[in-house]
């Protein structure tokens, strides 16, 4: 569509300047710095740097700890995503019954989105607390297994996954509900007239129509849990016990800020950048598609 425009030589540049300035100074410059640093070795005091080519990457990809952090990241991300999408779809399926009070239910599940994952982590830390928490107490009736997250890596992982998923479940539900409301009622009514039961309606009509949203949420949840997960790890487990919850983003911080191994930290940043670029590209391919369909 052709739009009428204003004619002014300098004004548009003045208008985009603040945005571009912040972008260049705080996004582009640091990103290039990371790229550059990843090719250098810096002494721990930061006084000497020497060019080492791809040595930082080679070292990284030969240490088992790095592969461990990749594995942890994928366990964490798939846990958070599976719970988010699972609960989201479940509630969406229930909501197709067109019952009253749907907006009230939406409110009742949406508010945890306002809770910062690190705070959610602290609450779950107490729920999982080996001596005072309610969860080990209840589980004690069923099994004598010791659910101590300080000793068992998988319990610590379950703790951070549940805390993160808790804050994000409402987001998924909100999107599924918005998608459901976009499905024309006439389609669903036609199906009921044809005698399709609730489960069949969901499986053969609603789920296919929701699948673009499901795919979109899949990517968004993955991005969120790859990159938004630092706080909960830092506040609650610090990567422990024994590196069981050390995810990639936490390792970048730990190796850079605490270990002062700038080259390795920068190399890890570059690998993460490649990951996020891939995921964002996927996300936008989908958005383009949705725009053309509607």
């Amino acid at each position: 569509m052709k739009r009428s425009v204003f004619r002014n030589r300098a004004l548009p540049y003045v208008l985009v300047l603040p945005q571009i300035a912040v972008t260049v100074v705080f996004f582009f410059w640091p990103a290039f710095e990371s790229l550059r640093l990843s090719l250098f070795r810096t002494s721990p005091f930061g006084d000497k740097t020497s060019f080492v080519g791809l040595e930082n990457f080679r070292k990284l990809l030969t240490t088992p700890e790095y592969y461990q952090s990749i594995a942890n990241t994928f366990v964490f991300a798939s846990g958070v995503t599976a719970i988010g999408l699972g609960v989201g779809l479940f509630v969406a399926a229930l909501a197709t019954q067109k019952i009253r009070g749907l907006a009230a239910y939406r409110t009742a599940v949406l508010w945890p989105y306002g809770i910062a994952p690190p705070i959610a982590g602290i609450i779950f830390l107490f729920i999982f607390h080996p001596s005072y928490g309610v969860l080990p107490y209840w589980l004690g009736f069923v099994t004598s297994y010791d659910f101590n997250w300080l000793l068992k890596g998988w319990v610590a992982m379950a703790l951070v996954i549940l805390a993160t998923a808790w804050t994000h479940v409402g987001y998924n539900i909100a999107f599924f509900l918005a998608g459901l409301l976009a499905i024309p009622t006439s389609v669903l009514e036609a199906a009921s007239v044809d005698g399709a039961g609730a489960i069949r309606r969901f499986r053969s009509i609603i789920f296919p129509l929701l699948s673009p949203i499901t795919f979109y949420l899949l990517v968004v949840n993955l991005i969120f849990s790859f990159f938004g997960s630092f706080g909960v790890i830092h506040a609650v487990t610090q990567g422990g016990p024994g590196g069981a919850t050390e995810i990639m983003v936490f390792k970048v911080y730990k190796d850079g800020f605490i270990g002062l191994n700038l080259g390795s930290s920068a190399a890890q940043s570059v690998l993460l950048m490649i990951l996020v670029i891939t995921l964002t590209a996927l996300q936008f391919r989908f958005v383009e598609k949705r725009v053309t369909y509607s």
Partner: peptide, 30 residues
């Protein structure tokens, strides 16, 4: 939206790319 100016496409892409550079991937240098 309301102006035509040289470098408009570049400005647009620069803003778009910030999506791909969350703070987590540029910790030390930022």
């Amino acid at each position: 939206v309301y102006f035509n100016f040289r470098g408009k496409a570049i400005a647009f892409w620069m803003i778009f790319i910030t999506l791909m550079l969350p703070v987590e991937v540029r910790i030390m240098s930022t």
